[in-house]
Amino acid sequence: MSQFRAKRLDICGYINAKVIRDHTKRKVFMEYEPERQALRYLMRNTSLPMRVRAQAQLQLSQMHSYTRSTVIKNRCTAGGIARGVFRDFKMARFQFREHALAGDLPGVQKASW
């Protein structure tokens, strides 16, 4: 059982292979985003010669998949879960509930009427 226990990091919470991969994807995406935007601009600019546009399209298609924004998934910073994540808090539903009930989230309180 101890082998499945997640390790705690000071930076973002629990770490497992998926969290590390997601962190890597985000770093690579941020590094290559200006280059991807430039290639997309060249590819879509109709005033340029067709050869330049085709070369830009080829370079864009040969870039690593981690440079695309669509491969980045929202993950819970507390548990690394990828489903049911509140974007504003970057937490999964269960983690959000626990932290809200403990009073760890400023401005969040249990509803009562």
Rank of each mutant, 00 (worst) to 15 (best):
residue 2 S to F: 10
residue 2 S to N: 14
residue 2 S to D: 14
residue 3 Q to E: 13
residue 5 R to L: 14
residue 6 A to K: 14
residue 6 A to V: 08
residue 7 K to G: 11
residue 9 L to P: 00
residue 11 I to R: 08
residue 12 C to M: 10
residue 15 I to W: 04
residue 16 N to Y: 05
residue 16 N to L: 03
residue 17 A to V: 09
residue 17 A to I: 10
residue 18 K to A: 14
residue 22 D to R: 02
residue 23 H to Y: 07
residue 23 H to Q: 06
residue 26 R to K: 14
residue 27 K to E: 11
residue 27 K to D: 08
residue 28 V to Y: 00
residue 28 V to D: 00
residue 28 V to W: 00
residue 29 F to D: 00
residue 30 M to F: 03
residue 31 E to W: 07
residue 32 Y to L: 13
residue 33 E to M: 05
residue 33 E to T: 07
residue 34 P to F: 05
residue 34 P to E: 06
residue 36 R to C: 13
residue 39 L to Q: 01
residue 39 L to W: 01
residue 40 R to M: 15
residue 40 R to Q: 15
residue 41 Y to W: 10
residue 41 Y to A: 13
residue 44 R to Y: 09
residue 44 R to C: 12
residue 44 R to P: 03
residue 45 N to Y: 07
residue 46 T to A: 15
residue 47 S to H: 13
residue 47 S to V: 05
residue 49 P to R: 07
residue 49 P to A: 13
residue 49 P to F: 03
residue 50 M to I: 14
residue 51 R to G: 11
residue 53 R to K: 11
residue 55 Q to H: 14
residue 55 Q to W: 05
residue 55 Q to Y: 12
residue 57 Q to D: 13
residue 58 L to A: 15
residue 58 L to S: 12
residue 59 Q to L: 13
residue 60 L to V: 05
residue 62 Q to P: 08
residue 64 H to C: 08
residue 64 H to N: 06
residue 64 H to Q: 10
residue 66 Y to C: 05
residue 66 Y to R: 05
residue 68 R to M: 08
residue 69 S to V: 10
residue 70 T to S: 15
residue 71 V to H: 03
residue 71 V to G: 03
residue 72 I to H: 00
residue 72 I to L: 09
residue 73 K to Q: 09
residue 74 N to W: 04
residue 75 R to W: 02
residue 78 A to C: 08
residue 79 G to L: 06
residue 79 G to K: 02
residue 79 G to Q: 03
residue 80 G to T: 10
residue 81 I to P: 00
residue 82 A to C: 04
residue 82 A to G: 02
residue 83 R to D: 04
residue 83 R to N: 07
residue 85 V to L: 01
residue 85 V to C: 01
residue 86 F to D: 06
residue 86 F to G: 02
residue 86 F to P: 00
residue 87 R to S: 11
residue 87 R to V: 11
residue 89 F to W: 09
residue 89 F to C: 06
residue 90 K to I: 03
residue 90 K to L: 05
residue 92 A to C: 15
residue 95 Q to E: 11
residue 95 Q to W: 01
residue 96 F to N: 01
residue 98 E to R: 12
residue 98 E to H: 09
residue 98 E to V: 13
residue 98 E to N: 11
residue 99 H to R: 10
residue 99 H to L: 15
residue 100 A to G: 03
residue 100 A to P: 02
residue 100 A to M: 09
residue 101 L to D: 11
residue 102 A to L: 09
residue 103 G to P: 12
residue 104 D to P: 01
residue 104 D to F: 06
residue 105 L to T: 02
residue 107 G to M: 03
residue 107 G to N: 06
residue 107 G to F: 03
residue 108 V to M: 11
residue 108 V to T: 06
residue 108 V to F: 15
residue 109 Q to H: 10
residue 109 Q to Y: 07
residue 111 A to E: 08
residue 113 W to V: 07
